[in-house]
Simulated scan of single mutants.
Amino acid sequence: MPRAKCFDREEALQKAMRAFWARGYEATSVQDLVECMGINRGSLYDTFGDKHQLFMAALAQYTEASLTRGSALRQDGDSVMIITDFLFSFMYRTLGDPEKRGCFITNTTVERSAYDEECAQKIREYYDCIEKDFQDLIRRGQAAGEITNARSPEELASFFVGVMQGIRVLGKVRQEEAALRPMVEVALETLKMKTAA
């Protein structure tokens, strides 16, 4: 009779995600995972499959949590204020990372997407979701006269996703608000309606 699992799958997955986030895929060994998750190798393989499958499950867990935070872009209200609050909250989360881990998605994009198509596809799906939320909000703001029509929603959404990733990358080496705030403020300038001379 097989033994029942005596650990919490989601808790173990969270621990694995933190290990991969801190060290990256290649630098995290199966032994590292066994130790941090508090389970044996047999349980790891039986529950999650191999290291790559575990990594993909951890990446999925992170992207789902990140997209939940991104739902702030789908709320009602003034579009410029929603984007402003979202970007500043994103900046402050970056500054509140004393371990300077950056973003798990960004780190993974750099480390693995060039040669791991399954991983690259998951990351593309994540970016597509964030861009879609920006596009919908910007389109709504343009229709309401809150956001300039000088650029399309698609162009602005792509730009804001790029700004977010830039904040995460720079935040790994410069944990000062003075370094990151200009990125947010200049980005927000692109939304402004032109005033009559």
Rank of each mutant, 00 (worst) to 15 (best):
E64P: 10
E176G: 10
R181N: 06
A196H: 14
P2W: 00
R23P: 10
V80D: 08
A157P: 02
D97A: 00
Y115H: 15
N149K: 11
D116E: 13
L156S: 01
H52P: 02
P98T: 05
D85Y: 01
S43K: 06
V30S: 07
G102C: 08
V110W: 11
I39L: 08
E64N: 11
I39Q: 07
A65T: 14
Y127L: 11
G70A: 11
Q121M: 13
R69Y: 03
T68K: 15
R18C: 13
A19I: 08
A72G: 14
Y45T: 05
G141K: 07
I105D: 00
G49L: 03
V186T: 13
S152T: 07
K15F: 04
E125C: 11
V161S: 09
G141E: 04
R9Q: 11
V80Q: 07
A16F: 14
F55V: 02
C6P: 11
P98K: 04
A57G: 05
Y126M: 09
I147K: 05
T47W: 04
A143I: 01
A178Q: 13
G42R: 09
I123E: 11
A60K: 13
F134N: 07
D85R: 11
R41I: 09
D136M: 10
V110M: 15
Q135T: 01
D46Q: 14
V169S: 10
N107D: 09
T84P: 14
D76V: 09
P98E: 02
P182N: 01
A150H: 14
C36N: 01
A196Y: 00
A58S: 12
C103W: 05
E64V: 03
A157N: 04
E131I: 04
V80P: 09
L137M: 05
R3N: 13
A72C: 13
M183D: 06
Y115S: 15
M91W: 00
S66T: 12
N40D: 15
Y62D: 06
M81I: 00
E118I: 01
I167T: 03
L156R: 02
Q165M: 01
K122W: 07
A60Q: 09
W21Q: 10
C6W: 10
K100T: 03
S152E: 02
Q135P: 00
R151K: 08
Q175L: 09
Q31R: 14
A72H: 12
S43P: 00
V163S: 08
L137A: 00
R181Q: 09
D76Q: 04
M56F: 11
E185S: 12
E64I: 04
G171D: 06
G38P: 08
C119H: 06
F55W: 08
D136C: 10
I83M: 09
V30A: 12
K172G: 05
E146C: 09
C36E: 03
L156W: 06
A114P: 03
I147H: 03
E154Y: 04
R139V: 00
R18G: 11
S113E: 03
T148W: 07
S79G: 12
A143T: 08
A16H: 13
